[in-house]
Design a protein around this nucleic acid. Structure first.
Lengths: 102, 102
DNA sequence: CTTATAATTCGATATTACTAGAATAATAGT
DNA sequence: ACTATTATTCTAGTAATATCGAATTATAAG
């Protein structure tokens, strides 16, 4: 993953509202939630929510699929995995390293 | 870790310049680098660099220690570990999960 | 065709971030 | 004291973000 792209994804997650949305989608798993379900659960005005979701999609963190009027969103787990790997990529040359555990 | 705090840390990492600084500090390990070394390596104007470093410190991602005129910065690996755990916290209830690998 | 539902786009405002030169502060050597 | 080094703070201009009501689009149902 390129640094620019990783930064875009981290920035997308670096907003409390978007992080809450993303974590909710992580929690519900691969089937995802509709925009309306997220709105009800987190109580965010529709237009605000729509902007935040668009940012997450644009960053590649979540994907969407339409079923008639309902738009389902789900977290992109593989992408998240890549992002985490990127963060610790240069880490293992040293002793006190995040990857010590494995 | 609280969501607000995690968001602050992710936002701090969500800037290409700061992410480059942070990754550099991850790479050099626990001894860290001086502000001047970072400036030479990444070629960032001093005032700009100072602001970015302050953000990383404030977010708790890096720490600083002074040796006479030289300020050394190093990545806080334990904090990074916590942040990563936070991101995948609600993840393991499902099949296609980041934590499948372990 | 009309109405209802689901969600986005528009528009406008307020706040915050990014950048970097100039000035300042802190420490050290002569 | 004077000068050099290291890094921060001041200041200011520019750009980007966050928020959300109102208007709009898209789809469906009667």
């Amino acid at each position: 993953m390129k640094l620019e792209n990783a930064a875009r994804q981290l920035e997308a997650l670096g907003n409390p509202t978007r992080l809450a949305i993303y974590r909710d989608l992580i929690g519900v798993g691969p089937r995802g939630s509709s925009v309306g379900e997220i709105r009800n659960k987190l109580e965010i005005p529709a237009s605000t929510l729509s902007h935040h979701i668009a940012r997450l999609v644009q960053a590649g963190l979540i994907s969407q699929e339409r079923d008639s009027r309902t738009l389902y969103c789900k977290a992109d787990f593989l992408n998240m995995d890549d992002l985490m790997k990127f963060l610790v990529e240069n880490c293992c040359a040293e002793d006190s390293c995040i990857n010590v555990s494995d």
